[in-house]
Amino acid sequence: MERSFTSVMLLAAAALVGGCATTGGFQVSEVGSFHAGGTQVALSGLAERELRLTPSAPVMKVNPNGEFETGQLYVQYVRLAAPRARYPLLMWHGGGLTGVTWETKPDGAPGWQQYFLQAGHDVYVSDAVERGRASWSRYPEIYTSEPFFRPKQEAWEGFRIGAGYSKDPAQRVAYPGGQFPVEAFDQFAKQAVPRWATNNAATQAAYDALVAKVCPCVIVVHSQGSAFAMQASLNAPGKVKGIVAVEPGGAPDPAAVNLTTVKGVPHLFVWGDNLAGNEGWARLRAAPDRYRAALLAQGGVADLLDLPANGIKGNSHMVMMDRNSDQVAARIQAWMSANRLMK
């Protein structure tokens, strides 16, 4: 039976009495990083080049042939001295972005990495295959398609920050009541990285390797990353203990997978504002909504947090960067408490 989000909040109220997740410090036991997944490839027959590697260096011959690692992801973790969560929290980003999504927000305010550390979680923030510190590989010898890049107008309009983009920041038109800090939009745009349309299999394999290494765990995932998180849960029954899908941009086809293996995994689907009448987002929502309905039909927990319906208005696609992101994070934290993901 489908549960309303309000009923979940009532269940969680007792767990939140006496403390505030957004105040106070936390004691860290370890900060570290690693790469997961990947495989060796060999290149041969490529021509040497002569390059000057720094302005004052002599010209050198560079040989592009040899063995290389490809298909790995990067993870930075912060472990607490006394975590209050049962499982580590893995934070996976969306398309054309990196783990910076979860770190300090573009306007300088603390992000969700900080919030959930203060709430008592060990936090693992990753850069997926081809992104950030995961690095990327040669095209066309290893990556079989060229990279593509998201223009700023696409981010402004597609991420539902506003309907009117201009290269002049003073001329941009944001949605009335919007929560994204529009004065920091250009700073946000600096986070964009190239992406490839042909690396999905490698990305899934790397995420599966991360789950095998770190989990049992809970995954908080954004946008494009949602399909990878749900598939990772299906690929490793019992390893993923909860999924929070923030504005999911995809999901597995329920007809093609065995949902009985994950019907005991609580899922929360979080959606922001200004979705009504948006044809592009209606198409993007179809797969996650179908997946959620199938989980419910299996008797699973697949809760919906419709932010405007719960009185939290103005959120963009980048919910975790909006000015009211802590308010949203508090709802997610309460949901995790209600679903026994805290000690």
Rank of each mutant, 00 (worst) to 15 (best):
W196N: 07
V17R: 09
F148G: 01
V78Y: 09
K241M: 02
S33V: 01
T39I: 06
F34E: 09
H222Q: 03
D303R: 12
T6H: 12
M60R: 15
A155D: 10
T260S: 15
A201N: 10
A15L: 05
C217D: 02
A209W: 01
N339W: 11
P147R: 07
D122E: 06
A21S: 14
A236R: 15
L80I: 00
G25F: 04
E130N: 15
E103V: 01
N63D: 15
H121R: 09
L210G: 11
G272E: 08
L97R: 05
F5C: 01
E69K: 14
F185T: 00
G108D: 06
R52N: 02
S166L: 09
Q187T: 15
P140F: 12
A297H: 08
T39W: 14
A109F: 05
C215Y: 06
P266G: 12
A12C: 01
V59S: 13
Q76H: 13
N315I: 05
N274H: 14
Q40P: 05
R79V: 01
H267T: 00
A128H: 06
L53Q: 07
H35Y: 10
I142W: 11
T261V: 10
M336K: 07
T261C: 05
M321A: 11
A197P: 12
G71V: 02
T101C: 13
S325A: 03
A293T: 02
L89E: 01
N199I: 10
A287D: 09
E30K: 10
V240I: 02
Q327G: 10
F228Q: 06
R290D: 07
C215K: 07
Q171M: 12
S4W: 13
N278K: 10
K105A: 15
R340W: 09
V129P: 13
V193N: 05
S44E: 14
A256D: 12
R283Q: 13
G111H: 09
V59R: 15
F34A: 15
S7F: 04
T198L: 03
R49K: 15
M230D: 03
A119R: 11
A227D: 07
S135V: 07
N65H: 12
E48M: 11
W92P: 03
Q179A: 14
N324I: 01
E130T: 15
S316K: 06
P181S: 00
A236C: 05
F180A: 08
S316T: 05
A256Y: 07
H222L: 00
N63F: 12
S145I: 09
K61D: 03
A209C: 00
L304A: 13
V17G: 04
G264E: 06
V62Q: 13
Q224C: 02
I312P: 01
A47L: 12
